[in-house]
Design a protein around this nucleic acid. Sequence first.
DNA 1: CCTATTCGTAAGTAGCCACTTACAGTATGA
DNA 2: TCATACTGTAAGTGGCTACTTACGAATAGG
Lengths: 197, 197
Amino acid sequence: MPRPDQSAKRRKRLLPIIAQAFAELGYGRATTAELAQRCKVRENILYRLWPNKKAMFVASIDYVYEQSAATWREILADIDDSADAAGRLLKHEAEHHGESGLHRIILAGLSQTDEPEIRDALRSMYGRFHRFIRAQIVAHRKGEDNGTLPDATASAWAIVGLGNLANISRELGLLTDRGRKRLFSDAGRLLLGGKSS
Amino acid sequence: MPRPDQSAKRRKRLLPIIAQAFAELGYGRATTAELAQRCKVRENILYRLWPNKKAMFVASIDYVYEQSAATWREILADIDDSADAAGRLLKHEAEHHGESGLHRIILAGLSQTDEPEIRDALRSMYGRFHRFIRAQIVAHRKGEDNGTLPDATASAWAIVGLGNLANISRELGLLTDRGRKRLFSDAGRLLLGGKSS
DNA sequence: CCTATTCGTAAGTAGCCACTTACAGTATGA
DNA sequence: TCATACTGTAAGTGGCTACTTACGAATAGG
């Protein structure tokens, strides 16, 4: 048998470059020629790794979640006393949300939702973000009364909405850094509820 | 002097059709050929009314705000006793948010922010939404203590975020109608603060 | 060594799309 | 009536882009 297939490793190596390109350029302007150039390969090599451009984009969407989740897991690991984990995550987002620039992939994807694969990838990504945040909220509120608070599901979606708006804000220059911080810390805290105060 | 120029009237007549097309198809798939066909004219006629496709899109973005604002003004006019105006608007959004489908134009625009004209149009649009909502919040909270609430600016951005998430949710099928209602009524109310309770 | 498969390079192609040009018809105001 | 703009029809066109084909070179196992 001849040479072993290195495709999987190579996909893994090139994906960050491709995701970065989609983030910087959007879907349309990230042409396959440009992607290839950034990867320092020819176009047909990309087509040997993914069936088409859409698939490269879907892989990039998944990559966005993986990156965020990895960061969050690190933070949670650092504070295994689990004291106010949700608050720590909120604080982290208040200060570093959107720094990588990868979030622009999501905005690019939202204009391609007529492609079922892309829509599915986005739905799955939002779902994973929501579940993660919801779990944090539930843990945070454990055994408190939560008088007039929205339930954990609604609160989690609202916080996802905060993150989304922060992304758009970064894109359009709507908020200052301070404004974004206050958005996360004040509105975020309010939605979180529980033992904050 | 020969025939008078009807361009302005015509732009006004065609804009809803064009906006609808952008909303349904997104920026890329709304080709100028398609736009012309829907308007029942030839392409070059569109090019006599707008300098290029980008300008047609920018006009459509403005149209989105105008439509929402018109609806809201109607609601406010119906209840000139000004009793809980903000609450009424929230309730309306909880039930009818995104029904027109026009919001998809915004999602389409967010992937074209490398075009300065489009970015400016979006920024202006978000700014107008924010000012409108902020004014409602300020009026709503007038003369209350608002202990740990975010200030009106942050709250207004958070509510803009709710609307945004509701749009995305409609696009991807993240929330049921009931879920969206709870998002607006529970999280929205919480952020609104003041005499709700 | 042989051979099956991967890897790299180069060129090409079919289709689409924003935008243009050319020209004939038509309504207006002086 | 007549010149001057506006209005409509028709047919391009140049450029770009996703994706393909062809082919030789390298590399592994048997």
